[in-house]
Design a protein around this nucleic acid. Sequence first.
DNA 1: CGGGTGCTTGACTCGCGTCAACCAGGGTGG
DNA 2: CCACCCTGGTTGACGCGAGTCAAGCACCCG
Lengths: 238, 238
Amino acid sequence: MRSPCLPDSLSADDLARIEQLVARRRRVLREDVLYRMGDRGGTLYAIRLGHFKSLQADRRGGQHLTGFQMAGELLGMDALGTGLHGSTAVALEDSEVCEIPYARLLELMPRMPGLLAHFHQMLGREILREQAVMIFLGNMRADQRLASFLLDLGERYAMRGYSARSFLLRMSRDDIAGYLGLTLECISRQLARFRRNGWIRLDKRAIELTDRDALLALAAGLQPALPIDSDSARAHAA
Amino acid sequence: MRSPCLPDSLSADDLARIEQLVARRRRVLREDVLYRMGDRGGTLYAIRLGHFKSLQADRRGGQHLTGFQMAGELLGMDALGTGLHGSTAVALEDSEVCEIPYARLLELMPRMPGLLAHFHQMLGREILREQAVMIFLGNMRADQRLASFLLDLGERYAMRGYSARSFLLRMSRDDIAGYLGLTLECISRQLARFRRNGWIRLDKRAIELTDRDALLALAAGLQPALPIDSDSARAHAA
DNA sequence: CGGGTGCTTGACTCGCGTCAACCAGGGTGG
DNA sequence: CCACCCTGGTTGACGCGAGTCAAGCACCCG
């Protein structure tokens, strides 16, 4: 049986070797810090179970959320450059990770070119993901950002075998706002708007994307700003 | 004499080996495309001379600028994940690059652990840089973004032995706007504001940061929004 | 000289941040 | 068990920053 920590593309032989270098598993409780900005790096964390958020301190006390990670994804790569972590990782719920010392990974690399390539792919994907975020932070409106975000979450759940339509938001509205570069109130309003328009159904943190096409169109900027602005629609009705 | 393509931390022996794998140098003229989004990747480009911008197509025709690269920096890493380039690189002026086939780099890795580490450091730095951009796209005002941008450019020039105070903006206002997630007009206005406040001197694309401390304070968010808003100050004077 | 490109400046609009009140659920302690 | 508070979320009113539209300017090139 394959460890969820590791790539599918490796041989059984490779796998055995790798199991050794997974020094240990570690449980992380909700709100606990996996590593903190400025900590010495050198360990990669494969998430076995649970969800994390990673955040970065703004120079003026503020905090910005740079990403959400779920089971099957990798954490800790931000320390490769300087040796120090550039962000803080916090568990959104009780979670479990595999600790993989980078040094041991390097030792194994020569004998396992497949591993190296896979590792680079994960790094490359991370760079791509961040570029995608930069795009919506750079030039999308609040509703487009939120739609993109919800669709992205759904896709990632789908990749892991869950539903892309219906899932639980593991993070607070405030976290979402931080990630999307918006405010908590704005998120709340946009969610309400989506609900009124019938794009989504929402109960607390449980969400169902009832009209993914509409969300896709919105995210892609096809909608003429506000399809029929439901706010003004309400005003007219009144 | 050391090649500007490659890390300083390598032995002379390593260097000789590496010179072989730099398949060829390539000249790229102004406005020419080094690689295009969707192109097959697999080659890394070390910039020997000149400046580049990299941009990504928004799903709806729009374009977002994801970075500026100068001599001594690396391009093409965004293809590591999927094998295809996720962005387009365009020369801002006549430039020259070293083409480094990724496959050859992989071959050499086992014999040169230093090279691998260095390579990972560049990847890690790229991830960090993008996170920094996400921060200012996410929660800084236009003036703060611009101040950060100018200071960052200066620092990068300083690292390469040029002045951090006085340099040439190689890109158009429109490019800057694209990168900072703002509009061309907004950049122009903010530059004018900086100039009126005496933070900078500006002549066409030549810029001098005459008061870096003020810019730093602004970027850090220490300024109470607008110190004494020079616009209204002008209005009072009139 | 004309025309084009890159930049500046102004007037107006509007999306989103800010401030603030209010509401719902959940945990605690009397 | 109910009263209480406290946290997380919703909703409203208002103002500001930045986008948009548009006119005008400086420079370069043919």
